[in-house]
């Protein structure tokens, strides 16, 4: 709505500041990306890395960089951005600060499928079918929650969506408890690591499976940033401004489900990024979604690259590092009142 009147100097200053922060974050993502290529159990010095990139490294260096490190780093960027933007959409549409992909049952649906699959299939050959199945689980759960909270002529009311989401997720969580307790220790460990979120064993096939979702959905969501601004004003105001609420909300929910569902499928339950990423970004660039959405994507990517680099070094699930790094910083930001 900024474009309907002449920009005041204060607005211009805000805009300049937001652009500066976005540029700075972009630079940080690139820097962390490069540093992350150097870290891991086997260190590559910057010059070795450069040589390997230019094609004159040893076979071992090429293997480490191209087959182990790069896919994981690219995956961190995609998953971090995907979860954070998904969370940003959901916080905007539901106008609830606690909203994250979990409210649409994404984690619960994918997790249930993973546990079911692990209970019946042997662990060794489960790796390639699993992302596909968990995407189906996530999508089906989200569709169930959405359709249960849909009413003809009224569309989706946020409060009903949240409540139905609570109920469905809780039901699935209960089923998961019962199934989990029947697993043997190896299966249990696999599920536990999956739930915590881990990028161990990522290869280029996973990256190419995830990439189309991100490439299509992120620009679409950025294009809809003004709709999110309007929805944030509240239903009555938004309707008064002529927004076709139900249709726009459906598009946005669908985009959020697509992003988070595809990310859960390959990365497991790292969804805390989806809650915290948008909040961190909001503190940096403010509530205007034109800046908030890209800032969320970059915050998510940054958080995940750093966390996954540490996870590689200490051999713990990535999601655990995300929470251990992200939560204290977030708490610190919260104590600085605004």
């Amino acid at each position: 709505m900024v474009n309907h009147h002449l920009a005041t100097p204060a607005e211009l200053a805000r805009k300049r500041r937001a652009f500066r922060i976005l540029a700075l974050m972009g630079g940080l993502v690139v820097a962390v990306f490069i540093i992350s290529m150097n870290t891991g159990t086997l260190r590559l010095s910057p010059s070795e890395m450069l040589q390997t990139l230019l094609g004159s490294g040893t076979d071992q260096q090429e293997l480490i960089l191209y087959q182990f490190r790069l896919p994981r780093i690219v995956m961190s960027v995609l998953i971090g951005a995907g979860f954070a933007v998904s969370g940003c959409i959901l916080q905007g549409v539901t106008r609830n600060a606690l909203a994250d992909p979990g409210i649409l049952g994404i984690n619960a649906g994918a997790g249930l499928i993973v546990i079911l699959y692990i209970s019946v299939m042997p662990l060794d050959n489960s790796i390639f079918l699993l992302p596909f199945l968990s995407l189906l689980g996530a999508g089906a759960t989200a569709a169930l929650i959405y359709s249960l909270s849909y009413r003809r002529h009224h569309g989706i009311s946020t409060i009903r969506l949240l409540l139905v989401g609570i109920a469905v997720s809780a039901g699935i969580a209960a089923a998961m408890i019962v199934l989990t307790l029947k697993l043997n220790p190896d299966q249990f460990k696999f599920v536990q690591v999956w739930m915590a979120g881990s990028l161990l064993g990522t290869d280029w096939r996973f990256v190419t499976a995830l990439l189309p979702w991100i490439i299509v959905l992120l620009p679409f969501v950025f294009y809809k940033s003004r709709v999110l601004d309007v929805l944030n004003l509240g239903d009555q105001t938004a309707a008064g401004l002529g927004a076709a609420l139900n249709r726009e909300r459906l598009y946005l929910y669908a985009a959020a489900i697509g992003l988070a569902g595809s990310c859960v499928a390959v990365g497991g339950g790292i969804a805390f990024v989806g809650l915290i990423g948008p909040h961190l970004a909001r503190r940096l660039v403010g509530p205007n979604h034109a800046y908030l959405l890209p800032a969320s994507a970059m915050t998510g990517a940054l958080l995940l690259i750093v966390s996954d680099s540490l996870a590689r070094m200490y051999e713990v699930p990535t999601g655990i590092i995300v929470a251990i790094l992200g939560a204290p910083y977030f708490l610190y930001l919260l104590t600085r009142a605004r």
Partner: peptide, 26 residues
């Protein structure tokens, strides 16, 4: 609610890490 969500996530991560490392998850 935000502080609660953050502290919860942090503590869950810590207990997950302990549970995975010492194999007391079950």
């Amino acid at each position: 609610v935000l502080a609660g969500a953050a502290v919860t996530a942090l503590l869950l991560a810590i207990s997950d890490a302990i549970a995975i490392h010492y194999q007391v998850g079950r």
